[in-house]
Design a protein around this nucleic acid. Structure first.
Length: 643
RNA sequence: GCUGACGUAGCUCAGUGGUAGAGCGCGUCCUUGGUAAGGACGAGGCCACGGGUUCAAUCCCCGUCGUCAGCUCCA
């Protein structure tokens, strides 16, 4: 038989008979690999384990540890789920069912609404299908054959997909009685699935279009071992424990009230301390970088929003008008027109530019009720906004300075990793934007050049630009590796045009300035929500609502405890005395649960020696220290924002 | 906004067609205890709101509001 050479990832060459399957190849390399293999990449093409190798080439055998292997594995799990659903609900119509990050989903049209009980039954049926170990078979079909097949199966959504396919021929995959339109590849058989779980069910519009039918989407996940699945579920549980809505409640940071209206945040004293610290820090950081800090009103006449273009492109997000003296006013959804009015207050010279105006500006936006989410998606929020008015030749440098500021601010809050996205306009949806194609291209090019000059890697997202200009969006990764929308830097040639902004150039002529809209934290609400989860509620000392708790052992030590409180407080430390009639252990537990950074236990020994017995979050008992020495330590920790 | 689930004490949650329970928290008292929960007693509920069915509704049905999981949309 003819022999072929397959080249493995390490460069070694393996000689095998032509027609050897990937699985056989894996077995010849080692039993471990044979056991874990799920698919392979052969000369750039993703193939299944059953596929015979008919010619030589480069091969990488993929396991669950490879992202692509994971995708194949979970996609097969989605098929198994779909076949289970069809067994239980033969009338169910199939939508699509891809693998996604951390799992998979499948969309179905089923008359009966699915509940968690249904999921259990589906999961049970999936286990049966896995037990039956049914082989996955690939079926290459011509377009019209496929159409006939799915017409016969009464799968209208699949038919729609086939009709829109441009390439010649399609493939379907079959296991047992179940057939699905699918590019593949798949696991060799259903028995290869080792661990899976269905997680939730929710509505999802067919093809993401609100105007089309809503299907029922079942989410699930699959892993190559029960242990890995358990670990993943444990991670979900850990994330749930950090949920800012839960932590915000237990730590008494903020609330939302049905009586007051959804999406409106009430900052409690403790949450307000954190916010105040963030704002103080923010102000200093901005003044240091040449920003002026301004304030502006909350409402303005409707005409202003017509001039800015908000009425045309942002109206769906704006609260309705209120009438004052026969004139309509609108609650501000953005701060920019206000800063623009201030800019126009006097004639500006090129010497004045750049002008950097920053404002903690509270804005209101109408968000659809289903979009609201804790602190992350609200209807009233305070942006750490700023507008930089500059000359065209200053844009790139200004953008770079903003990115640097953002990097600095994020690092202070412990966000060391982030992803940068260049959000550009979508030429196919011109009515989403104001301005001409030329100005858009110029603006997008300037942003890209700034990033290039900094040597920063970024992705480009088409259609993610604001209505007035493109943006650099920075997504910060938190302690659990999740991405949060953070700083955004938006370039705007359009509003200066609409408001006819001017400055006198060195040449004595009138010129048009450029505006940079930017936030480095986003909004106080969203940033705070992210921060709560990032730290799991255990704020570093400089942000902690209570920095030190003094714990007297008995009432005899109360006076000393209060002396310490007075002294620490006079030095600006947020310190409380736990004077309740409880035992030390109880008070310590309480302070631990509230994630107070430092506890000072004081009893006879401490009163005698003017010391404190220190217990710090994450360190446990640290022994006795002079109370003034420890105070210096805390002050240093706050000053340096460590700890 | 859409689909589904949910809404019971301050919080987390049980529960039943015959007007309600636990733990934590809160209050009072006892206790003065050395590094993650001492004990006793007590207060606290229009069972989200509005209709309907029923002799009787917290429970069943409808609607409204809100929350949650998503979809869609965003700082």
């Amino acid at each position: 038989m003819e022999e072929i050479n397959v080249i493995l990832p390490d460069g070694s060459v393996k000689k095998v008979p032509a027609g050897t399957t990937v699985e056989e190849l894996a077995r010849s390399i080692g039993p471990g690999l044979a056991r874990d293999a799920v698919a392979a990449r052969f000369d750039g093409r993703l193939i299944g384990l059953n596929e015979p190798l008919n010619h030589g080439g480069h091969i990488t055998i993929l396991t669950f540890d490879d992202p692509e292997g994971r995708e194949v594995y979970r996609h097969s799990a989605a098929h198994v789920m779909a076949s289970a659903v069809k067994r239980l609900y033969p009338d169910a119509r199939l939508g699509i069912g891809p693998a996604i990050e951390d799992g998979f989903y499948y969309d179905f049209e089923i008359d009966e609404p699915l509940t968690p009980d249904h999921l259990e039954r589906i999961e049970e049926t999936m286990r049966e299908i896995v037990e039956e170990d049914i082989p996955f078979e690939c079926m290459p079909l011509e377009q019209d054959e496929a159409l006939d097949l799915f017409a016969e199966l009464d799968e209208q959504y699949k038919q729609e997909l086939i009709r829109e396919m441009e390439e010649q021929g399609v493939t379907a995959y079959r296991h047992g009685e179940f057939v699905d339109l699918c590019r593949g590849p798949h696991l060799p058989s259903t028995g290869r699935l080792r661990a899976f779980k269905l997680l939730s069910v929710a509505g999802a519009y067919w093809r993401g279009d609100e105007g089309r039918p809503q299907l029922q989407r079942i989410y699930g996940t699959a892993f190559d071992s029960q242990a890995a699945l358990d670990a993943h579920l444990e991670r979900l549980e850990q994330a749930r424990k950090r949920d800012h809505r839960r932590v915000g409640k237990t730590l008494d940071l903020y609330s939302i009230h049905e009586e007051g209206g959804p999406g409106l945040i009430y900052w409690h004293p403790k949450g307000s301390v954190v916010r105040g610290e963030i704002e103080d820090f923010w102000r200093v950081a901005h003044r240091d970088r040449g920003y002026d800090i301004v304030y502006s009103p909350h409402i303005a006449k409707k005409d202003l929003w017509a001039t800015s273009g908000h009425l045309d492109t942002f109206q769906d997000s704006m609260f309705g008008a209120m009438e004052v003296d026969g004139v309509e006013y609108i609650l501000k959804p953005m701060n920019c027109p206000f800063h623009i009015l201030m800019y126009k207050e006097s004639t500006r010279s090129y010497r004045d530019l750049p002008m950097r105006w920053a404002e903690m500006g509270t804005v209101y936006r109408y968000e659809r009720s289903g979009a609201l989410h804790g602190l992350l998606r609200v209807r009233g929020f305070t942006q750490d906004d700023a507008h930089i008015f500059c000359r065209p030749d200053q844009v790139e440098d200004e953008v770079i300075e903003v990115v640097r500021l953002a990097q600095y601010m994020l690092s202070v809050f412990g966000y060391t990793d982030y992803e940068i996205v260049l959000s550009v306009h979508d030429e196919l949806q011109p009515d989403k934007y104001i301005g001409t194609p030329e100005t858009w291209q110029e603006a997008e090019a300037k942003l890209a050049r700034s990033l290039d000059r900094m040597g920063l890697a970024y992705e480009t997202d088409v259609g993610e630009a604001k209505f007035y200009g493109p943006a650099i969006d920075i997504k910060m990764l938190d302690a659990l590796g999740r991405a949060w929308q953070g700083p955004t830097i938006q370039l705007d040639f359009n509003l200066p045009e609409r408001f006819d902004l001017e400055y006198a150039g060195e040449d004595g002529q009138i010129h048009r300035p450029v505006m940079i809209h930017r936030t480095v934290l986003g909004s106080m609400e969203r940033f705070f929500g992210g921060l709560i989860e990032h730290y799991g509620g255990a704020f570093p000392t400089w942000l902690a609502p209570v920095q030190v708790v003094v714990i007297p052992i008995t009432d005899d030590h109360l006076e000393y405890a209060r002396d310490i409180q007075r002294d620490y407080r006079a030095h600006g430390i947020r310190v409380e005395v736990d004077d309740r009639n409880e035992k030390v252990g109880y008070k310590i537990r309480n302070a631990e649960v509230e994630k107070v950074p430092h506890m000072l236990v004081v009893g006879d020994r401490e009163v005698e020696a003017e010391t404190v017995s220190v217990r710090s979050r994450g360190h446990g008992e640290r022994g006795n220290m002079d109370y003034r020495d420890f105070q210096s330590e805390v002050l240093e920790e706050i000053e340096n924002r460590t700890g």
